[in-house]
Design a protein around this nucleic acid. Structure first.
Length: 687
DNA sequence: CTAGGGTTAG
């Protein structure tokens, strides 16, 4: 009835009907009516845009606003902008944020402090501090909210130093921080581990009687846990006049981030027995804490318990527990979680989506990873970083580069992790010049100073490309202290390229930086063996014995019919062991005939040639691959996981296997994925 | 009318 009349109704009556629908929450009828109005005026548009934002449909709000902008006869005002700014903040969509900012400039928001503040907040939520800074500088007058929003923006963007700077400046400008300012600045002290600044703010809180605010006191607990000790944090917590669930959750999280899982568990029991009202966040803290401390199984058990207590896992729960599915060991639980996120529409949450992209990539399925990424409604920096990293992990350096350029083109700003991802892609695909260009463009074009990780990545790029002297030269000239990562990359390449001199230097540095890492000793010993320097090799092995360092046992595992089967070198525990060794021997014959030469440089023991070949034959990855091939039952691809780097001989052998048996073999080692197909590996033999 | 605590990437 109403919609039929709409074409004839005066504007103010239409608005009245619209409001009536909206008051009862009937967005659908409201939209229906709106669509029937021939020439809605700005006020009518604003009513609907605001309604969409308020009722939790930010996408619709922005869509409608975009439509409005296309109308040449209507100029947007600050009221409608305010609504759409809020919507954009919820979505944290930088691209849209910039467009809306442009519109706001046309309107001239400079004296509209409310719109200006909302814009700063929006940019903060989008993690785009440059935009926020521009708005902040353009504001003619600034109030506490302007300063606080700017400060919070810096914290969100990972720039705690700038946040503290804003905090000091607002004092100099005669602006008094309020309780929200204080609770926003505390995490900055926490991040920087600036105990003195933290104490200073604690003093300010006490002097101004803000100590009773739970937001603030919880922030102080967190600050002390990060900057000083969990004991001091506990003391402050004990002295708090008021505590809510969040205060308890903060302390709980602090114990976990201190690695004290036992204390955290105890605290959780205490919470239950003292009748503290548990909420989803308490369970999320427990699950997230267990995950960060490698207690995968416990996290999955808590996930079940949480539901027994009547709490539904939410998108935060899912994001934090999804990494549990990246090892095949927990793949069963992982599949359940995956199904759960589908059923509950968490797939559309950016963080869940991003965690899924990573999960699929880490499980060896780059295709699905890419598909989830493509289906993401919006892609932020973290999402792009993840897909770039996923491609790099799988040896797709060119794709990683392509994605990087796409990211820039779509208006998403790269951060330091982005460059770690692309550079690692370059190193796995031998893209030396591309990497050099990227590395130089970091500070020049993107204002990101390379850190130790980026320098290590460059060492890795040069090393894997076989430019060992250049890499060594680069290490010596780099302005930051070379990390174990840098020397490790160089040492690994020295094994591949059989360079004794540089390998020895790199290893000696590593023996100082990480004396307990057995991998370095093994690598150097392998290098000596390959160069037939038996004495040096046995010297290294003696060094290992003297220092009590044990070689980490290599373990490979593979899933066959929903069960995980794991293998160690020479393993005969599997009930198909006889068949496996028989098969490998048979296969070895065929391989030799097509040109395979066992490379005994990769054997540590002092045994004769024939025995060495036997040892090679029984490496865990070969056993797992053989087992998987024997149990293919019609399939054409297998996926094997190994805890250490793949052995060089196994790498060659598996290439032959893929050709002779005609299967696709995916092998994930500690560093990356190898995709073997028809006698070739995706890593192009630079593993 | 505008700002705050637990979650995602190495």
């Amino acid at each position: 009835m109403v919609t039929k009349l709409a074409t004839n109704l005066p504007a103010n009556l239409c608005q009245k009907f619209l409001k009536t629908y909206l008051n009862t929450g009937d967005l659908e009828s409201a939209r229906h009516l709106f669509d029937k109005i021939p020439q809605p005026d700005l006020k009518t548009w604003t009513i609907l845009v605001t309604a969409y934002t308020k009722q939790g449909y930010p996408e619709e709000s922005i869509k409608l606003y975009t439509k409005l902008r296309q109308k040449n006869n209507i100029r947007v005002d600050s009221l409608v902008l305010l609504s759409v700014v809020k919507a954009c903040a919820v979505l944290s969509d930088v691209v849209k944020a910039k467009e809306i900012h442009e519109d706001a400039i046309k309107v001239g928001f400079g004296s509209d402090i409310v719109l200006g503040n909302a814009l700063i907040d929006m940019y903060g939520k989008c993690r785009y501090f440059e935009g926020a800074k521009r708005v902040f500088n353009e504001l003619h007058m600034k109030d506490v909210i302007s300063w606080t929003s700017m400060l919070a923006c810096y914290v969100k963007c990972g720039l705690p130093k700038d946040a503290l700077c804003v905090f000091r400046q607002m004092g100099l400008n005669g602006m008094r921080p309020n309780s929200i300012t204080v609770s926003s600045v505390l995490p900055a002290c926490s991040d920087l581990k600036y105990l003195n600044s933290g104490k200073e703010i604690h003093g300010f809180v006490i002097r101004n009687g803000m100590g009773h605010n739970v937001f603030i006191s919880s922030g102080i607990v967190d600050m002390y846990a990060n900057c000083l000790s969990i004991r001091k944090a506990q003391l402050v917590f004990d002295g708090m006049s008021q505590r809510d669930s969040v205060s308890w959750n903060v302390l709980l999280t602090s114990y976990f981030s201190n690695g004290d899982c036992e204390k955290a568990m105890n605290l959780f029991h205490q919470m239950k027995s003292e009748g503290v009202k548990l909420n989803s966040a308490s369970w999320n803290s427990m699950i997230g804490g267990c995950m960060q401390n490698g207690r995968t199984e416990q996290a999955l058990r808590l996930l079940v318990q949480m539901q027994d207590f009547g709490f539904k896992p939410n998108h935060i729960t899912i994001s934090s527990v999804l990494p549990a599915c990246t090892d095949l060991e927990s793949s069963k639980g992982g599949k359940e979680i995956h199904g759960y996120s589908f059923r509950h529409w968490f797939i559309h949450d950016m963080m869940v989506g991003t965690a899924l992209v990573l999960m699929y990539a880490k499980c060896g399925n780059l295709n699905l990873s890419q598909r989830v990424f493509n289906s993401l409604p919006r892609k932020d920096t973290v999402a792009w970083n993840t897909i770039i990293l996923a491609n790099s992990m799988h040896g797709k350096g060119e794709e990683a580069l392509l994605l990087f350029h796409k990211m820039i083109k779509s208006g998403i700003k790269p951060n330091s992790v982005t460059f770690t991802g692309v550079l690692s892609g370059c190193s796995h695909s031998r893209l030396v010049e591309e990497a050099r260009f990227l590395f130089e463009s970091m500070s020049r074009d993107h204002k990101i100073e390379p850190d130790a990780d980026h320098y290590s990545s460059m060492v890795d790029v040069l090393s894997r490309a076989g430019r060992l002297e250049e890499a060594y030269d680069f290490i010596q000239k780099m302005p930051v202290e070379p990390t174990a990562g840098a020397w490790g990359a160089l040492l690994g390449a020295c094994r591949v390229y059989k360079n004794v001199d540089i390998g020895r230097i790199a290893a000696e540095r590593l023996f100082v930086i990480e004396p307990d890492n057995p991998g370095n000793y093994v690598l150097l010993s392998n290098i000596f063996v390959a160069a037939k320097q038996w004495d040096n090799a046995s010297h290294i092995r003696k060094l290992m014995r003297d220092r009590g360092i044990k070689k980490l046992p290599g373990i490979s595992w593979v899933q066959v019919k929903n069960k995980i089967h794991s293998f160690s070198a020479g393993d005969k525990r599997n009930n198909q062991s006889d068949k496996i060794y028989e098969f490998l021997e048979e296969l070895g014959e065929k391989m030799r005939r097509s040109g395979y030469l066992p490379n005994t440089d990769f054997v540590l023991q002092d045994v004769d040639q024939e025995e060495k070949e036997d040892v090679l034959c029984s490496h865990s990855e070969k056993l797992a691959v053989a087992f998987a091939i024997l149990n293919l039952s019609g399939g054409s691809s297998i996926c094997v996981f190994k805890n250490l780097r793949v052995c060089g001989d196994c790498h060659t052998a598996i290439k032959f296997m893929s050709k002779i048996v005609g299967v696709q073999i995916t092998l994930r080692d500690s560093l990356r994925f190898h995709h073997f197909r028809d006698g070739f590996c995706s890593c192009r033999d630079f593993w």
